[in-house]
Amino acid sequence: QEVTLRLSHWIPPTISPATKGVDPWAASVMEASEGRIEIQIFPAQQLGRAPDHYDMAKDGIVDLSWVNPGYTAGRFPIYAATELPFMVEDSIEGAKAIHEWYMEYGAEQEMSDVKVCFIHPHAPGALHTQETVTGPDGVSGKNVRPAHATMARFVSLLGGGPVQVPAPEVREALSKGTAEAVTFPWGSMYDFNLTEEVPVHLDMPFYISAQVMVMNKASYDGLSDENKAVIDDHCTPEWSGRVAAGWHEDDMAAKDKLLADDSQTFNTPSEDEVAAWREAAAPLTEEWKEAVSAKGGDADAILDAYKAKLEEYGAAY
């Protein structure tokens, strides 16, 4: 063994993004290096709070870090395009598309002080409620726990109240009426035991939240050439697809289980309702463009490229 890399993430070590994404990736790196690289994994915010994870890699506190850019509003305006609702239908192909698009249009602008390694989204999440909601007017007057900053803005736009609580406290917030709805991936219904609290699901690819694995620049530069090659081989659009696949699989299994459960109600929006949702979300795109332009980016070109990549991979909704 030549080098030890420390990897930090902020989720429990037992849930699928860890067991089917981060852990197999790390194992593959270690195996491909023939034992030269050891990766120590520190889960569950052991080395820092979730929103600090980008800076932890940047500052060398850890070598590798699993970041949710959505936790730091305003910090990664280009990346925030991935948070726009109703864009991605297939998270596995989507991960590859986002990876290619972001390396070309965003990584150098806003994540230049780390090496971007892979993109790790969940399967498109849905809107889970206590009462039936099929169109955007259904959110008005409801307290909703949003998945990230862009969803929070969306809830506000729709006349609802975004309620900020950490993921493990969502169940409590719902059972007490602090929140009445939540945007969450399907798997979270079982991970956080929410099937009784929000048994009504709007079956449309509402949004994704895409984590990014990033690596400290100096840690990467300090590797031998053959070790660098191992890391490079593991920081590809294909690996983004592979890590996304494990999470996707578990999310879909959870959705199937919900579908088979009589106590759960699924609503599919009509075409008009889908159009209404898209229209309601239009101001988010405008706000995103403003934010990107304010930092000197060509917002239209970046967004067009994003949509084109999603189309190319057949991942667009």
Binding site: G48, P51, D52, D55, D59, G60, I61
Partner: peptide, 9 residues
């Protein structure tokens, strides 16, 4: 660098 993040957090 821990001191840049952790106390404020």
């Amino acid at each position: 660098n821990l001191l840049a993040q952790s106390p404020i957090s």
